[in-house]
């Protein structure tokens, strides 16, 4: 992913920085796309909307990009915790804590995500 290089300015979000995450068609249908960030984040396409969340399940450490997507709910395929992509809320045990959700803007089929300043964004090696 790359930081900005955006023609039209994206709205300021306090404490966050916009990055180009991917194109819309790079996001798979039934699972997430893992981004090259630290902490790990992933992008999901659900019901025509795009969402960006912290990728690590709050139960143990499984990747939610590997999860099972149904509507706006991603289910961790290790022990079945469920999270709402819109709010990050943990909807089902064994997880108790929410995952962080990040603002997303789609322009010209490109997905931009606003990650907190302290997240590391690794650039793509083209």
């Amino acid at each position: 992913m790359t930081e900005n290089a955006v023609i039209e300015p994206l709205p300021e979000v306090t404490g966050r920085k916009w990055s180009r995450a991917c194109t819309t068609d790079e996001v798979p249908e039934d699972e997430g796309l893992l981004l090259t960030t630290l902490p790990k984040t992933s992008v999901f396409a659900a019901d025509g909307e795009f969402y960006c969340v912290d990728d690590t399940c709050t139960h143990e450490t499984y990747s939610l990009a590997e999860g099972w997507l149904e509507g706006c709910i991603v289910e961790c395929t290790l022990h079945n915790a469920k999270f709402d992509l819109r709010t990050g809320e943990a909807l089902s045990p064994p997880a108790e804590r929410a995952i962080a959700v990040h603002p997303v803007i789609v322009k010209n089929n490109v997905v931009y995500v606003a990650l907190p300043q302290n997240y590391l964004v690794k650039s793509e090696q083209a």
Partner: peptide
Amino acid sequence: AGINRPRDVR
């Protein structure tokens, strides 16, 4: 049942 096929098991 499976090993190392979590999405297929799901």
